[in-house]
């Protein structure tokens, strides 16, 4: 990801706080963010925790996987799926969620929120 401005990273949790191949919710300056430990791809992702469909704080409790190679999360409420890379809705609707830069250093997880 190319980011022009300098990111300010916030430490949010330890890698052990997020189950492998699943998500967990963290609070960053009053905002709920879902953090995913995508062990199977050796990748980490961060998105909004809120599913835009019914405005439920639930995406961190959704199952993750891929659709034709695109990493995704499925909302536990009505199984709307979203790309973990760009937040686009993959189940054919107009919703979109925000994604956030994330990195892991020394067993700690960091997120950049503008």
């Amino acid at each position: 990801m190319e980011v022009a401005e300098k990111l300010s990273w916030v430490e949010v949790c330890s890698i052990d706080d997020v189950p492998k191949n699943a998500g967990a919710c963290v609070e960053v300056s009053g905002k709920q963010i879902a953090v995913y430990n995508f062990e199977h791809r050796k990748e980490w992702y961060a998105t909004d925790n809120e599913c835009p469909h019914k405005k439920q704080m639930a995406l961190s409790r959704g199952m993750i996987g891929d659709a034709a190679g695109e990493p995704k999360v499925a909302c536990p409420f009505h199984k709307k799926t979203f790309s973990l890379k760009n937040g686009a809705c993959l189940s054919g609707e107009e919703y979109k969620i925000a994604t956030y830069p994330i990195k892991v250093e020394n067993g700690r997880v960091f997120i950049a929120v503008s």
């Binding site: 995508f38 199977h40 199952m63 996987g65 190679g69 199984k79």
Partner: peptide
């Protein structure tokens, strides 16, 4: 193949 999904995992 792939990473699985909300259909095959459960």
């Amino acid at each position: 193949k792939g990473d699985g999904c909300e259909v095959c995992k459960p």
